[in-house]
């Protein structure tokens, strides 16, 4: 793994909101093909870091590189064209479009002829096929014609994944993909993410509050604390890291035990 190529890298990445150093001097390296989770308690700066990685926020200082290319100041819509797909913490779908149309917008967004308004959608067979493929992968084929707002919450989150997959990104950025899911649906959903990750040979960066969820499937984990990186390592290294434990892991353990079924904590 350490020999692997770096696909996403930050150098001295910082974002301050007035006096608050939400993200401060973060140097992060994501290797090609790994499933990398970023965890930390509320207020650790995870979501700010995520928004910086996906170019939704501009940093106060520092840079972001994707495959060696400086992407710090690219407009957000360029990300998808480079092969970076992102999801949001809050479910983001187009509620009154059908499930199929939701996915097709995503495919179409990377097509070339968006601004020829007179071209009927139906002519673009390959859009259709790509969209159906993404629905197949996420198991949503049977609800393709249903308006997205009629889906269950779990299926809405799957639809989000389908929207992402339809664009076939190299790098997946997922912000708390299991948030809002019922406890019993979480393992199945994480398995889906893992399957997509392995089968599609993608690089996946996962921001997660619930560390229980990521322990079993992450290749490496970055722990954030007060805007800075506290530790980076394999799940085992992280769970044994005394600094992580001392700083706040105990507090999180308590939270996990209350939350219900235990994972494969070392």
């Amino acid at each position: 793994m350490t020999e692997a190529q770096v696909i996403l890298e930050t150098r001295d990445l910082s974002r301050h909101f007035g006096g608050l150093k939400a993200v401060d001097g973060v140097n992060l390296q994501i290797y090609q093909g790994e499933l990398h989770s970023i965890i930390g308690p509320n207020g650790a700066g995870k979501t700010t870091l995520f928004n910086l990685l996906s170019s939704t926020l501009k940093p106060t200082r520092g840079r972001v590189f994707f495959k060696g290319r400086d992407i710090t100041h690219l407009p957000p819509y360029r990300m998808a064209h480079l092969g970076i797909g992102r999801s949001y913490q809050i479910t983001n779908i187009f509620p009154s479009l059908t499930v199929f149309e939701n996915v097709r917008v995503a495919v179409q967004a990377l097509g070339k002829h968006n601004f020829n308004p007179l071209t009927p959608i139906e002519q673009f067979q390959e859009y259709r096929e790509q969209a159906l493929e993404a629905l197949e992968l996420t198991g949503l084929t049977h609800v393709a014609a249903v308006p997205a707002l009629a889906l269950s919450h779990g299926d809405k989150r799957k639809l989000e994944l389908a929207i992402l997959l339809a664009q076939n990104p190299e790098l997946l950025l997922l912000d708390e993909p299991t948030s809002g899911l019922a406890g019993e649906d979480v393992p199945e959903f994480m398995q889906l993410i893992e399957r997509i990750h392995r089968q599609g040979q993608k690089t996946t960066v996962l921001v997660e509050h619930n560390m229980n969820v990521v322990m079993s499937l992450s290749d490496r984990i970055t722990v954030m604390h007060q805007g800075q990186i506290l530790a980076v390592g394999t799940p085992q290294e992280i769970s044994q890291n005394p600094e992580v434990q001392k700083a706040y892991l105990g507090e999180m353990y308590a939270g996990i035990e209350q939350a219900g079924p235990g994972g494969e904590m070392a």
Partner: peptide, 23 residues
């Protein structure tokens, strides 16, 4: 019926999302 149309309809619901998709 058109692709611009579906982008507009999607954008009416969530323009930030449409941007994230690469538009």
């Amino acid at each position: 019926r058109t692709r611009l149309g579906i982008i507009i309809r999607a954008g009416v619901q969530d323009s930030q999302m449409v941007e994230a998709l690469g538009i």
